[in-house]
Write a protein that binds this DNA or RNA. Structure first.
Lengths: 226, 226
DNA sequence: ACAAAAGTGTTTTCTCTACACCCATGA
DNA sequence: TCATGGGTGTAGAGAAAACACTTTTGT
């Protein structure tokens, strides 16, 4: 028991890399840091872990405060522990990436923090090592999108295959053959065709799809080879 | 500045999942816990993070103490932060997996801790959530082995393709076709054929290979499809 | 009429897999 | 000589990629 006493204790924070998708672009939610040091500079959503919550619970809490959303997809990415990564006091930072449906997102909550969605290719410089965190999270997002359909996390509940393809093109920064993408995705058997059609994006109109409710968690299939 | 003061601080530990390969089997290095609670039960190599070191440095320090080796391959796996995962006081645990070449390993260091190599299929019950940690690390090892040749980390500096294949069979718990495995691995272009032959494992004798020194870090190729 | 996306089908290319086969050699 | 691994080659299955083509409809 005594053994525990002699060791140091550290502040523990969570930082959330919040991805959203809007207007054909993958976006990141950033906000100006509210306190010193580097107050006012752009930063990831973050907060300290409290006495009786896990890091994951802390991340959910932070996201709920800043976006008004709960039940958000979260995945742990990496823990940064460099003793000098923050200047005032050592902070252990556990990072998560989150996928947000911007159509559900409550702007009012965010505005009070000054948060802003940034296109993934036009990010401002971030505080501390947050740029590295974002880069790692992007790689993880690509990995996740490659083995499970991230459409349900980033798109509205109904979406066309064009919308899904454009999302994948935004994530992977490349184009996909429309025909092949359609066949591949439908062959996974996790999408359900709806009766409604979307006529805003093409003359002919495209059927809406949604992710089947009773699908298994992991598809085990490759959507994008890498 | 004041903002920092009000938040709690936690003990921070590293736990190392140490893989080795010997006698055709993938093995895990475990040791009997040296202090209460659950003193004497089997546990991962672990230790607390000190004031002026990063978690990665702490993991290297722990490994050096217990195995006598430095410059070991380490990769961060996951951070466990459940407030009740340890019974005495809350501990944030950052886990790493390590790959050890048992041929280099110094037995004397380890014996003083009572450490023991366990075949991966015959692990004893571990303390706390360490069994889960091991399971996750195994998945990560499979992933790593799938996209980079782990031979250099787990095998002696010279190895035959039979030895490499047996290693992969131990990791993936399946067999690989000898001819196909050879072609696939050689096609990656990261192995260099040596002049020496190994005659202990076959009548004909097989050439030794080593990993090319100037290879790029990531191979970007799939060795094992998954 | 035309452009643009929807949707389907075909061809080519490539990789994985299974498996046949010869070689070398120690027991 | 026979069993065992070393090492090479080939044929078939299946997936990915390239791309041709037809449909629909707003402008």
């Amino acid at each position: 028991m005594e053994y525990y006493k002699q060791h140091p204790r550290f502040l523990t924070a969570v930082d959330c890399v919040v991805f959203g998708y809007e207007a054909g672009e993958l976006k990141l939610l950033l906000y100006p840091r509210a306190f010193e040091p580097v107050k006012g500079e752009w930063s990831l959503m973050g907060g300290f872990v409290r006495e009786n919550e896990s890091a994951e619970e802390a991340a959910h809490r932070v996201l709920c405060q800043t976006t008004g959303l709960d039940n958000i997809f979260l995945e742990q990415v990496y823990t940064f522990s460099n003793p000098t990564r923050e200047s005032v006091e050592r902070v252990i930072s556990i990072t998560y990436f989150a996928l947000i449906r911007i159509d559900r997102y409550k702007r009012n909550n965010t505005d009070s923090f000054g948060a802003k969605w940034w296109p993934i290719n036009e990010l401002p410089p971030l505080i501390f090592d947050h740029n590295e965190v974002v880069a790692q999270s992007l790689r993880r997002l690509e990995q996740k999108a490659g083995s499970s359909l991230v459409g349900s996390e980033l798109l509205p509940s109904r979406f066309t295959l064009l919308q899904l393809r454009k999302l994948y093109e935004a994530i992977y920064q490349r184009t996909f053959d429309p025909g092949n993408f359609r066949k591949k995705v439908l062959s996974l058997g996790v999408l359900e065709k709806l009766d409604q059609k979307n006529s805003t994006e093409s003359k002919k109109g495209a059927y809406y799809y949604k992710v089947k409710p009773n699908r298994v968690e992991e598809e085990l299939e490759r959507i994008v080879k890498y």
